[in-house]
Every structure is written in C-alpha cells, then in structure tokens.
C-alpha cells in the first residue's frame, strides 16, 4: 500500500515537473522542424515566467498573466528569428546570446517591477482541476487527473502540434523547409515566413513553460528559475526523435527522473540522488549515439538558408 502511495506521488510529480520541459521541448521540435535551432529556450522560459508573473501581478488574473507570458515568448522568438533568418548569425551563438540577454533582462526588469525584496511578490496562479470520475481512479486519478489547467493544455497542444506538423498542409510545408529549403522555395513555399512562424510559436511554447513555473508551481518569479529546463528540453527533442508526441513523452520521462530524485533524497539518502539527475542526460546521449541523430533530425537544421547561394 505504501508503495502505491509513493507511486502516486511520483506520478503526480512527474506530471508537474515534466510539464515545463514538455512545453519547451514542443517549442524546440517546431523550430527544428523548420530548420532553425532554438538554443534560446532557456532564456525564453525566463521571459515567459516574468511576463506571466508581471501580468498576473498587475491584474490579479492568472489568465491575463498567461497571455502576457505568451506575448513575451512570441517577441523573444521573433527576435531569435531575426538573428537567425535575417542576420544569419550562427544559430547556436544567437541562442546562447539570447539566453544571456534574457537572463540579465528578466533579472533587471523583475527588480524594477517587484522591487528588490527577496522572495518577490506572490502572484495569482492556477489551482488544480479535478476531472470528475477520472480523478476517482485509485493512484492514477489523484496524480494525473487532478492537475492544474496548464497540464491539460499541454496534452491538447501536443496533440494539436502533432496533427498540424504531421497531417496538415502547412505542417508538410514547414517540414519541407527544414529538410530542404531550396526545394521548398522552388516549389513556392514561403520559406522565411514559415520559419518566422515556427520560431515565434517556439518562443511562445517555451514561454508557456515559464508561465507554468510561475502560475502553477511557485506563484512568484525568481531570477534564473528556469534552472536548465530549456537545456533539458533540447535533450528531450532528441530523445523524442523530433516528434511532438515523442518529445512530450521524453519530457515526462525527465520529469519522472526529477520526481524520483526528490523522493529518493528523503526516503533513501544512501542512494546518491545525483544518479537520477544525471539519468535524463545519459539517456539522451545514448539515444543520440545509438539511434543516430542523422536519421531523424531535419536535414537542414542549423544551416541558414540563402536564396542567392547555390
């Protein structure tokens, strides 16, 4: 019985800790499918978190906070797109620069908005929603069907992203751009417009991850609160084989490792909990090596497309 309770706890933790990683990973998948690396996810999570906290702080409405966060994410995505598509800065350098920039900027702005007091200002957030009937299922019910609204939003968005990317015309165009922009261009696909679209959506999704941290987890903005989740999301993209559903599953696996690690620290201190912290990275590295990245990574990801270049 005790084990079932523990399992339920870990499952609930998995959903809670995996959700932000999953949002960011979804964003990364969409960007990479269009041929653009988004190494800036980490910074964009912070932008989303600050936007959500500020919006909710100013209006007292978590929903408006969510909207503000998403807008911040969209803008940061557009900026990254401008660097990658227009200026054709090396996409990895651009992403790293964006991370540095947003880490500093969110810290600066948060002190302007909330003042310098430690802990920051508590903001209005989302509460858990119990889904009738389903939440009565033992073990699974309390852990998976009494989550906050953003978890359900994640599931919805994941399915939608999968459909859009894999089944719709626009998604096909987008994937074509990521595989062979020249061919797509010649076929009349608006390459740059689609890349801007993808990178903006990517930023917005990363921002949802930040919004989840603020509005569903801790209800306050903290500097550097993304704590590497944007980088773990990059791993989830690989482990999920550049598929929206795969990436979400990988992110939830990472969430599971994190939740298990928390439990272990308290229940069995003799097992080094760092083992579980390392596990997601090792799993991704092994996936990268064994499955081979070339097979499923978009062929043209990271290479700036130049119309006038043969």
């Amino acid at each position: 019985m005790v084990d079932l309770v523990l399992l339920g706890d870990v499952l609930a933790g998995t959903a809670r800790l995996g959700t932000p990683i999953a949002f960011a990973a979804l964003g990364g998948v969409i960007a990479e499918r269009s041929g653009l690396y988004n190494i800036g996810l980490e910074g964009q999570i912070l932008a989303g978190a600050l936007g959500a906290a500020a919006g909710s702080f100013a209006t007292g409405s978590a929903l408006i906070g969510l909207g503000c966060g998403v807008i911040c994410g969209l803008l940061s995505g557009l900026f990254l797109g401008y660097m990658s598509i227009r200026l054709r800065i090396n996409q990895l350098v651009g992403g790293i620069a964006l991370n540095l920039l947003l880490a500093g900027l969110t810290a600066f702005l948060s002190r302007q908005i909330f003042g310098a007091q430690a802990g920051g200002a508590r903001v209005e957030g989302f509460t858990q929603i119990r889904i009738p009937l389903l939440s009565d299922i033992p073990v699974l019910g309390p852990s998976l069907f009494s989550q906050d609204p953003l978890f359900y939003l994640l599931i919805g968005i994941a399915v939608l992203a999968w459909y859009w990317l894999m089944k719709s015309h626009k998604g096909l165009d987008l994937r074509a751009v990521g595989e062979n922009p020249k061919a797509a261009d010649l076929a009349g696909v608006p390459v740059f417009r689609l890349q801007y679209l993808a990178i903006s959506i990517s930023g917005a999704l990363a921002a949802l991850a930040g919004a989840h941290l603020v509005l569903s987890q801790v209800y306050v903005f903290a500097e550097g609160m993304s704590a590497g989740k944007g980088f773990i999301a990059l791993a989830a993209i690989i482990l999920g084989r550049w598929s929206p559903i795969g990436a979400v599953c990988a992110a939830l696996f990472f969430g599971f490792c994190d939740a298990a690690q928390f439990k272990l620290q308290f229940s069995s201190p003799e097992v080094p909990y760092q083992l579980f912290l390392i596990l997601p990275y090792i799993a991704s590295l092994i996936a990268l090596v064994i499955l081979g990245a070339k097979a499923s990574a978009p062929a043209s990801v990271g290479l700036p497309y130049d119309r006038e270049h043969r």
Partner: peptide, 13 residues
C-alpha cells in the same frame, strides 16, 4: 548589477 548581464548578452549579439 543585472544590467551588466544584459550588456554581456548584447555584446555577443
């Protein structure tokens, strides 16, 4: 002091 972090990011950009 976070202004300086912003400057560092901008320097790279």
């Amino acid at each position: 002091s976070s202004v300086i972090e912003v400057v560092e990011g901008l320097v790279v950009v």
